[in-house]
Amino acid sequence: MSALLVEVRDLWKTFGEGEAETQVLKGLDLSLGVGEMSALLGPSGSGKSTLLTILGTLMQPTSGRYTMLGEDLMRASEQDLTAFRNRHIGFVFQFHNLLPDFTALENVIFPTAVREGRETPAARARGRALLVRMGLENRIDFPSTNLSGGQKQRVAVARALMNSPELVLADEPTGNLDRASADQVMALIDEINREEGTTFLISTHDDKIAGRCRRQILVGDGQVTG
């Protein structure tokens, strides 16, 4: 087994209070090794998205331990988590993925530009290279709203990779796409994973997508069941 990237122990997440209280995660344990490519599976409402947002430091768990790259993320301040996210975690969402008033390239380089305070030529060069790699060489300066669904998701993958993060979290990244587009996006993710050793955790309902991942993590009743 490869080196440990993410370690989650006894993770609890409860929404609401009293009557409306919902326990979504109930003492979940999970480890992700460096370079792993895993599918996150489970019935609707099982807490896949909840787990991904907690791993992405966008939401605090109710209790538990979460370390990534050896850092205790339960103790980090909001500012530290924002900076950590920027450097070490990439996201691909199902909807609302790109900034609509910006071009494909501008979207891709956002994570670097926001950290450096401006769009540097180096960032632009890397953004271009990533878009070329995603097969979007003739869509680089397209307004993001003019892209097709599959193209948008490929731009989103490029953006997730922009800061060379150790971990990319994707929540049903192909949920909106047709078969061909979904396969294309997955092929690219697969390629990046093999070539660069980026760790991916991809939630999906699609068995074919899950089949492309080397590990399947099944969530049920608030815990990892397989």
Binding site: Q79, T82, H96, L99, F110
Partner: peptide, 15 residues
């Protein structure tokens, strides 16, 4: 939604 995306990409509140 866009603000949410920017925050997820690591844009600080001050930004």
């Amino acid at each position: 939604p866009e603000i949410g995306i920017m925050r997820a990409m690591g844009a600080p509140r001050g930004f």
